[in-house]
Design a binder for these strands. Sequence first.
DNA 1: TGACACAATTGGAACGTTCCAAATATTAAG
DNA 2: CTTAATATTTGGAACGTTCCAATTGTGTCA
Lengths: 349, 349
Amino acid sequence: MTKARVTVIDIAKAAGVSKSTVSLVLQSSSLVNEGTRAKVNAVMRELGYVYNRGAANLRQAGAKSRIIGVVVNDLTNSFFAELAVGVDMVVQSAGFVQFLSNTSESIDRQREVVASMREHGISGLIVSPARATDATDFKPLVAAGIPVVVVVRNLPGAKVSSIVSDNRAGMMSAVKHLAELGHKRIAFLGGFPDTAVFDDRLAGYRSGMEAAGLDYHQELVISSAPSRAGGVEAIGKALVLADRPTAAVCFNDAVAFGVCDGLRARRLEPGADFAVVGFDDVIEAQAAVPALTTVSVDPQGIGRRAAQMLLKQINAGKAEAETVTTAVRLVVRESCGAGMRVKIKQDFA
Amino acid sequence: MTKARVTVIDIAKAAGVSKSTVSLVLQSSSLVNEGTRAKVNAVMRELGYVYNRGAANLRQAGAKSRIIGVVVNDLTNSFFAELAVGVDMVVQSAGFVQFLSNTSESIDRQREVVASMREHGISGLIVSPARATDATDFKPLVAAGIPVVVVVRNLPGAKVSSIVSDNRAGMMSAVKHLAELGHKRIAFLGGFPDTAVFDDRLAGYRSGMEAAGLDYHQELVISSAPSRAGGVEAIGKALVLADRPTAAVCFNDAVAFGVCDGLRARRLEPGADFAVVGFDDVIEAQAAVPALTTVSVDPQGIGRRAAQMLLKQINAGKAEAETVTTAVRLVVRESCGAGMRVKIKQDFA
DNA sequence: TGACACAATTGGAACGTTCCAAATATTAAG
DNA sequence: CTTAATATTTGGAACGTTCCAATTGTGTCA
């Protein structure tokens, strides 16, 4: 267990050159002679040298630390896990590393985490903001020249780049599909009404209803937490309505699963007795029974795209805010009652 | 957009003290007068100072960077996402940040990622090693005084700490449960036979069979990739056996889901016509239909525990290798045919 | 009043790298 | 063989922090 760590000076001494030369080798500069380079590299391997990025970064005064910060609001949601994987892919192959943190929707935690990342000198940040994040929260970062890309949830008013999926179009196509199957009373279930994403999806729902020539009824819009439990709650409210809906588009897949649970608890089989459509297409969606009809958003693709965008800005040196909305597509499976080849009946023991 | 960054010297000047004093304030040393502290803090806020950990870390020569590296082999598997969340929780509240990377089972990627983390001066590493990771791969780290905690998959022969779940006991209890339900021919399905985890689980299976007074038949052990697809494959092989099994314990939940798929493809209903038990208790397990009976290992708990262990070693300054196996418990749901209150019949349209 | 403890503050030297300007070695041209 | 051009190499001086030893101020005690 060698105590002192090996520095460029040590290897310079051992290779019989100056530390400057070693530094040049490290940066694979073309100025250095092939022979010297080989020798230096050999010595480095031999002594087990490890590059000290901290020191390098210090000298390069605010230059690239090659660290990308990624903060998501709920990593246990596989949607975000996929997203992080997408980011990691491109970030890693560009020679960067990823600082990943989870805020669990806590805005305080988010602040802490971002501050900490800044102290570590991240060269860019990808963030899916916690609920109620203020649009100005990332101002100091961009002021300091650190590019920020907001994903999934947009932050209207913030002057940062963002990538969101086409929530409007997605919801519209879901409603259209249900209308084509003959449904007239279609509910919109779940989601917190104070978010931009909710607004977009609801707008898509309204447009879809209108396009299908169906009336919009306020009572059919039932908000709740965007979680499984929230779904159960929302469908509960929907089913006691005087004029019951026969189908629902849900804020996201988690809600949709909750809706299925709620239906079953009332002896209704999703897909057969009531049509349900989700949003996100998380991995569980196709595995569930019945398989969930849902709007696919390819979180990994969004992650990759966000990373590319961020890297572009980092390399360009300037952060020109740009907004991208990614295409989505409806994936028809069983829960909407369309493609069902297997009808499930229950009999209680 | 202020160009130059604010340093301790700037705030020292502005506050009318020396940089040393500012440094003391930063470390909240008790040496500094309350009045001075307040003033310095005020100036820091005013000028928008951000601490440069890189520089600090440089001076403190190999001291704490407050970065914990976390590398997992498959983040899209919610088991590992949960684990990462658990780590993040304790790591974050201890004032550290987490570097998270995904190897996708690539050993080259793992090497790259770990090297990169080292360059960034991580003060500790938590790793779920990619398959075929060599026991000596982390030697340089521990030699450099960087504590390493291996989770989930142990690395026999490596002199590092590890936390694995009690695979043996878990499998035993699963087999015992099936035997109590009257099953005699119980298969062991899925998993790669060249891993330590496989060995442990298989050993548990054998002990369980023995304890239940059942014979061990080589043919009932069918390995495959530890994935959903692998599960389909394994059950396929099992069902063509001359003397078919009536139940199976699976290497993990992914395999178990695949087994269910495979059963259904053959018009067999898991839970009713064939009992299946998984391992891990991923979140989807309780949501699936039928809900999966499985061995719960609490990945988040393992993550927390691993982080605690690592922090302890970091604080102690010495990395005494210690091995922990965490308790598991069988969660009985529907797929084993035990607690089923709802029997599902299919009729094909 | 001098001596002494104690509190608070401070200037420089370090940490491991990169950059710059300048030095030296090598080659080509005359 | 000199000169100019080119190819390599090289000492410092930074970067922003922490640490150490030393300094200054403030009160206490004989």
